[in-house]
Design a protein around this nucleic acid. Sequence first.
RNA 1: GCCGGGGUAACAUAGAGGCCAUGUGGCGGACUGCAGAUCCGCAGACGGGAGUUCAAAUCUCCCUCCCGGCCCCA
Length: 462
Amino acid sequence: MIYNTLTNTKEEFVPLQEGRVSMYVCGVTVYDDIHLGHARSIVVFDMVNRYLRLIGYDVTHVTNFTDVDDKIINRANEEGVDALELSARYIERYYQEIDSLNVLRADIYPKASESMEAIVAMVQDIIDNGYGYATEDGNVYFSIDAVKDYGRLTNQSLDDMVAGSRDVMQDPLKRNNMDFAVWKAAKPGEVSWPSPWGPGRPGWHIECSAMIRDRLGDLIDIHGGGNDLIFPHHENEILQTEAVTGGTLARYWMHNGMLQVRDEKMSKSLGNFLRVSEIIKNHDAQTVRFYLLNTHYRGPLVYAEGSLEEAHSSLRRLWNGYRELQAYLREPPGDDDATDIIASARERFHTEMGDDFNTRAAISALFELTREMNRMTSAATLSHQGAEDALRLLQEADSVLGILPVDKEVAEMDQVVSILADVRQELRRRRIFDLSDLIRDRLKEAGIQLEDAGEGVKWKKT
RNA sequence: GCCGGGGUAACAUAGAGGCCAUGUGGCGGACUGCAGAUCCGCAGACGGGAGUUCAAAUCUCCCUCCCGGCCCCA
């Protein structure tokens, strides 16, 4: 089930082609670093992508870069650099930052600047089909009067929107104030591309329509983005595509909720944003992902001081349980396979994920599994088979969530730490506690927490 | 004004007619040289008001507060 903004209901997900999913997610305008709000959208659709793959779909995930735009040009002028140079720089940073968030890269990242042929062709089609007109000064507008049913996604009539819209500078050559630019004539000195209407650049909405058509085809399965894009961006994308193809653009529209800071939307224009590059200095990717996925993607999420710290505390519980299971494989086993517990946890996980990607509820199932497993490992009733099955389920879930510790590092360090731990155990046995505590304290300073358990010593990174 | 999303225990979030919500934090126990982890138990809740129902946090209506969209935005 997927909640479809088009119908405002949850619908059964049926892809166009069996076993295949085409998904387009609106990316960012690259004139600054990404912030936690962008990260939310990116991580949410990363989760969607990963889950669809987990359950067997062959997904083609496309996310664009808007690298030609007023704000980029302005910023470039301020800094005295070339606009495309500036956007290329931020695209590089974007990649670094999503990598640091353990995000699976999309299959294709088209850029507006590299899709001009498709864009110009689409503008031409719009004009040819009677949905657009060029003005004498080289702009091309989409004619709102040519469409019959406006506002399907917004669920609002044209009249209502005109009534509430603020006054903006209008081009007197527009036939209708609601007409929007699909091609903008270049001002002197601006980056531009040649076109039948003179040098210029694409309007904001057209690039997505054109790139979708170019990369994925006329009709796609899922179109995603932040819910602040519903109007006008996605609304206009629909109009443009329909003007050209005569059919609808996407079957399922998914929109993630906004991240708020102190009751305000986090946004570049409000200047209240937290850069991912800053956050990642103090928090690991797993914690950030856990924070973002431990709530439903459609609802608002309010960031407050300490939110990430709290997320980390919660997440540690999962980590502890996970490591406990790994350690348990080296201990004398019990004979309980916990088959039912694990099976019902798996079922619950998939039921919740299948219900419009309810990661919050799916994570609850993992916590409950962890409690059961902790109970059984501490009582040593769990079998090795049971521990392996539970680990496998956690790993399966993690292939979607990306919140568990990375095993590789653990294995590398395990050997070294265990030597120190053994020495310390011997000191404790001889009741030389000052030295044993010294080892523990020094390790803690190095970010490694030793924990004495009944049967042995465990360690983890703090 | 119009259109969405929200208001759930100290905090963060699920849930959407009856059944034990999840985590953090708090309190009390078990374990323990100490610390930590873990387990067991406890407290504490559905913004307000009507209504429907045997039964409402969940459905209907009214009110109220917050956030977002209607120029740019994930």
